[in-house]
């Protein structure tokens, strides 16, 4: 009945899915300009590097979370995974153990394992993602406490500290380099590979993907596995960055990762979102936090601001969706 009418509106609707990420890019640039005007220190190179350092851990989690969100789920357990893998790395890199292979590989694999378990339960056993990952969130956090005996672990070896803390050209911390490499690699996977394309297809319409010969379960499972893997990497790096690990580390990180994706234009329904969106989203969160710290705004106000921004962005998203129908 409305076909002519619909076609008339095509022009206006075109490309709205990319719109949010672009709008957010302007928001990010706008924030940067405003904060630079408010504090001359903000835009100094040293502080910009700081911002990237502070983005890295959440940013890496957001790249993984983006995969889970793309296939139509999300992962509440990554924060706990950061805690667990951080503890595993710390246990293997303290007390005079100088080797890097063991702590790095074991902590990252632990994250991957959590992700695979989540993925199998979600994709093959059809348990809702929220339930599964809430369960693993608790289990994994429990494991972190057990392994650490409840104590924070300090005294990570110097070589391990260098993993994240080392400097490229004496200026850029490796941590930042890892983040950029991981984000770009994920961008390539999502944008350019068949595998990435299939994540979008499965998230957009799993049944259509199945009829089109795509192994829907495998794609879903692997997306959760990547999310876990990123949790493992983030935990491994967090231990290096703080030269310590606590079983509590990473608590609530999953929410920041989800927030980064949502701010960056990922739809919680799955199947929509641009790779650069998750980077912009993560940067917005850390620019806000860094800028407000520098301006001396108390963290309690920062919490309110963060929540308000997320709601406003989702509101814009919902409103633009409503206009479409």
């Amino acid at each position: 009945m409305m076909s002519m009418n619909e076609m008339g509106q095509n022009q206006a609707r075109k490309g709205r899915s990319n719109l949010q990420a672009l709008v957010m890019l302007f928001v990010l640039i706008g924030m940067f300009i405003v904060l630079s005007l408010l504090s001359p220190m903000f835009s100094r190179v040293g502080n910009v590097i700081n911002i990237f350092k502070q983005t890295a851990i959440n940013g890496i989690l957001a790249t993984g979370m983006a995969c889970a969100i793309l296939v139509g789920g999300f992962d509440m357990s990554v924060g706990s995974t950061v805690g667990l893998s951080g503890i595993i790395a710390a246990l293997m890199a303290t007390g005079g153990q100088e080797g890097l292979f063991l702590p790095v590989v074991c902590s990252v694999l632990a994250g991957l394992l959590v992700g695979v378990i989540n993925g199998v339960a979600v994709a093959y056993m059809k348990v809702p993602a929220f339930v599964v990952t809430l369960g693993t969130q608790s289990i994994v956090r429990g494991l972190a406490y057990i392994l650490s005996g409840g104590r924070p672990i300090f005294g990570v070896s110097e070589s391990y500290e260098k993993i994240a803390g080392g400097l490229l050209f004496g200026k850029i911390p490796y941590l930042v380099i890892y983040y950029i490499v991981i984000a770009l690699l994920m961008g390539f996977i999502l944008q350019c590979t068949v595998y990435g394309r299939r994540m979008y297809a499965v998230g957009g319409n799993a049944e259509a993907a199945r009829v089109s010969g795509i192994n829907v379960e495998f794609i879903q499972m692997s997306a959760f596995a990547i999310c876990g893997l990123m949790g493992g990497i983030a935990g491994m790096l967090s231990t290096s960055r703080t030269v310590s690990a606590a079983p509590l580390t990473g608590e609530g990180y999953e929410l920041d990762a989800i927030a980064s994706c949502v701010i960056g234009g990922f739809s919680m329904d799955g199947g929509a979102g641009k790779w650069y969106g998750m980077i912009i989203g993560a940067l917005i969160l850390s620019v806000m936090s860094n800028g407000l710290d520098i301006l001396g705004v108390a963290s309690y106000y920062q919490r309110i601001l963060k929540g308000a921004i997320i709601i406003i962005i989702v509101l814009i998203d919902v409103r633009s969706k409503r206009k479409r129908t």
Binding site: Y200, A201, N205, E207, A208, A209, V211, G271
Partner: peptide, 8 residues
Amino acid sequence: VTGLNLIA
């Protein structure tokens, strides 16, 4: 339902 990814 089973043919298209509408948002793509």
